[in-house]
Design a protein around this nucleic acid. Structure first.
Lengths: 233, 233
DNA sequence: AAGTGGTCTAGACCACTCC
DNA sequence: GAGTGGTCTAGACCACTTA
């Protein structure tokens, strides 16, 4: 049995992956220590560490100090979704991007929105309803609340030339975000804006974004019928 | 100006993050080379490298050899979704998990399914329709096709004690997967199985899984009304 | 108390890409 | 050709956990 040296972390990772998928190391079993693997592959322990660390992050391995490393029993499937910038997504498909503001108001928000944005009840928020289109056809209906205390400049912008999303990305340094994916049945408003029959199942993305200073914006994106979000593992 | 030493990669990362979000380094700008940063922070270049590499993977930095490192203009938002094992998700909420097989057949699949599973037209596939319940209430309607040539043992299993998903995870070493998230409007079948009115918007996850040897299974999970998938950034 | 993974260092060479 | 990030090494110490 030849044992050619493996001295790149990619190589080590590949070999370890192989041993896991081919059940050389079975789920729940301990695998050799880093030092042993380093000796076997003829490389430094740091190289083995780099390879195993990534596999652990991917959920294929469970690592604990003193205990050792074992093959995960339930490999957690983590799908990495890329949240698209609507305009770029449409342009990438070779379609013409369009965007228009349906309404722009400054009301006292419903209690649920005030809670989500963590503002005192009775404070007014900027409320924008806009539509993104692809080749003129409705693509995404955007329903957004913006906290003008966190982003004062927003009051001077009319969003005729740039969508609120892109404006915010450019102007405000985010620190965190919160995403929820779900589905809804088109009510009157969605049906009209997206030109689809009431009752159509629609894909929905709710997103809330903040900085250290507080909540910036909370948006609901309602996608056109048939929209899919895709990823590969 | 004191410049306390930073000699952990987490510390370096935090400081670099701060300089990006506070616009000390502005979008599109080059940041100092690894060697310079290492000198500034009083740590090894490898430590800086580890910190910056992760930020680049997260989409906050663009790195290129010879060119250098710059702050990303469009920070790509990548949301990492954890695909749940249904049973565990339900149990984690303190509810009682249940599962039952609605139908189990071995038909020639529709052309669309045959294409997705990459089997010759006319070959039969195992078709399973099952329901996962939480405290007795419908949770997920699972519509699955399995390639018996890739997993012969599947023909001997009746899935009364274990769901197809968990059985497959345990028996078959996956190599890759393909996920699509979307929404549909409940038709007669979904409405009946999930006990909801026809026309309800439902969250859908389509998943196809394979090994090097070929396609294993293709499944559509239709979640109960109101289901949400959540992640934080 | 001991053994494991987690990390840092200093130095080195390599791969890629821009000039 | 030269300069940047990408990676490997050998050694060391630390943090955590379990026996």
């Amino acid at each position: 049995m030849t044992t050619p040296e493996i001295n790149t972390w990619q190589g080590v990772q590949e070999e370890v992956r192989r041993r896991i998928t081919q059940r050389v190391w079975r789920p729940g079993e301990f695998i050799p220590h880093e030092a042993d693997l380093a000796a076997e592959f003829g490389c430094a322990r740091a190289t083995v560490n780099r390879a195993l660390r990534e596999l652990a992050e991917a959920g294929l391995l469970d690592r604990r100090r003193r205990a050792g490393t074992r093959v995960a029993v339930n490999p957690v499937r983590k799908a990495q979704l890329e949240i698209p910038v609507i305009r770029e997504e449409i342009v990438a498909k070779g379609q013409a991007y369009g965007h228009r503001v349906l309404s722009r108001e400054m009301p006292v928000p419903p209690a649920e929105v005030a809670a989500r944005m963590q503002v005192a009840p009775g404070r007014k928020l900027l409320h924008l309803r806009t539509l993104h289109t692809a080749d003129g056809a409705p693509y995404v209906y955007e329903n957004r609340w913006i906290n003008p205390e966190a982003v004062p400049a927003v009051l001077a912008e009319d969003f005729s030339a740039i969508s609120p999303n892109e404006w915010l990305v450019r102007e405000v340094p985010f620190e965190g975000g919160d995403f929820t994916f779900s589905a809804l049945s088109a009510g009157g408003a969605e049906a009209e804006v997206l030109s689809c029959p009431a009752g159509t199942g629609l894909f929905v993305l709710d997103r809330t974004t903040w900085t250290g200073a507080g909540m910036i914006t909370s948006v609901r994106l309602v996608f056109h019928p048939g929209y899919r979000m895709h990823t590969r593992l």
